[in-house]
């Protein structure tokens, strides 16, 4: 399964741009289009994944890794295996966003939103492919370090399990942030029974703490 990125949804880009539903001028629409194209041409999505059997106490077989926090345990309650994944848009996208900032900050902000939406699209596409490959078994949504009470420091274990730096060129900072920034790590449960779509609603969202909509008592609508 290769990383796939065919298009970047504009609605998602607008969400990352904190678009509050005011009138969208034609030139901004054109900017979205242009930045989407630029990001699609530049990004080189890569991904790495591995499947592990789940042992009692949520231990991943062949490792000494127990995913951290209570939420992930509940999330994987019904699963016998877990897929650990890491995906990135690559240094190419990172450089595009950074270097554009020096020339045209507005474009850089839109490209940043395009990058965020793009890496989510890569993950969505991957999960679609996985679901097809694993049918008739069932997959959970993605759960990433930082969601719920899963600590960010779980990144270190995931990086070591998948050899993320060597395999797809993502680097982890001392504070557990990933560079390139447009990168995602996640766990996906595998089960014999259908899994609820838990990834919807504010509490399950990776942006829960950061969400500008929620701060104002609104919702982004997902």
């Amino acid at each position: 399964m290769e990383a796939r990125l065919e298009s970047i949804p504009h609605t998602e880009m607008l969400r990352y741009l904190s678009y509050h539903g005011s009138f969208l001028p034609e030139e901004i629409r054109a900017d979205l289009e242009r930045c989407e194209g630029l990001m699609l041409r530049t990004a080189r999505p890569r991904l790495v994944w591995r499947m592990f059997a789940l042992l009692p106490d949520s231990l991943l077989e062949g490792t000494d890794y127990h995913p951290g926090g209570e939420d992930i345990r509940a999330f994987l309650y019904d699963c016998d295996s877990v897929i650990v994944m890491a995906a990135t848009l690559g240094i190419e996208a990172e450089n595009l966003i950074r270097r554009t900032a020096g020339k045209n900050l507005a474009d850089s902000v839109i490209l940043d939103a395009a990058g965020s939406a793009a890496i989510e699209a890569v993950c969505d596409n991957f999960c679609e492919d996985l679901a097809a490959a694993f049918a008739p078994r069932f997959l959970t949504d993605r759960f990433s370090p930082g969601y719920g009470d899963m600590p960010l420091s779980d990144q270190r274990a995931i990086f070591s399990l998948l050899d993320v730096s060597r395999r797809i060129g993502v680097s982890l900072s001392e504070s557990c942030l990933m560079i390139p920034q447009k990168s995602v790590t996640a766990l996906i449960g595998v089960s014999d029974r259908p899994q609820p779509k838990r990834g919807r609603g504010c509490e399950a969202c990776g942006n829960y703490e950061n969400c500008c909509y929620r701060k104002e008592g609104k919702s982004c609508g997902i």
Binding site: S22, P25, A106
Partner: peptide
Amino acid sequence: REEIFLPQLINAAN
């Protein structure tokens, strides 16, 4: 007043 949004603000600043 949300009559314009972020990219436009930045374009104006540029």
